[in-house]
Design a protein around this nucleic acid. Structure first.
Length: 126
DNA sequence: CGGCTGACTCTGG
DNA sequence: TCCAGAGCCAGCC
């Protein structure tokens, strides 16, 4: 009997966040709250941000952390100064367009999530 | 185990 | 549209 009193049945939140972020396709962005919701906790947006905050440098290269922005469609930061600029540059390189105020049009670039697909073409946006 | 922090989000003024 | 306050969560000390 493999000891499984508390097995990886509930992997660290952080790990899940990384896994999920890796699934965000190039040219698309996701919000912290959205990722949290996909993970089953729509209220854990801050936790998602925290997870990405302690994202080790080496891993940053394997995880498209730049594709995660806030619900306002803008880049979030706290403290660091070069990060926001770098994030924006990386996103623009992927084709993400920024508003004059530095806002991304979520209607166009928001990732729809890991959902297999939508109902046939029923709309989205206006 | 308790308290603090932070790449968030929502509501009200 | 911008600013301030309150709520929520996981990770770290």
């Amino acid at each position: 009997m493999a000891t499984r009193s508390k097995p990886p049945s509930t992997p660290p939140f952080v790990k899940r966040v990384y896994q999920l972020v890796r699934r965000i396709p190039r040219g698309k962005v996701a919000t912290y709250g959205q990722l949290a919701a996909i993970l089953g906790q729509p209220r854990a947006a801050r936790a998602v941000g925290h997870a990405l905050r302690l994202l080790p440098r080496p891993m940053a290269g394997a995880i498209p952390w730049q594709r995660v922005i806030n619900a306002s469609g803008r880049i979030s930061f706290r403290g660091d100064v070069l990060r926001p600029d770098l994030q924006r540059a990386l996103l623009e390189k992927e084709g993400i367009a920024f508003d004059r105020r530095g806002t991304v049009d979520l209607k166009r670039f928001l990732w729809r999530g890991p959902k297999k697909e939508w109902s046939a073409g029923v709309g989205v946006e206006l």
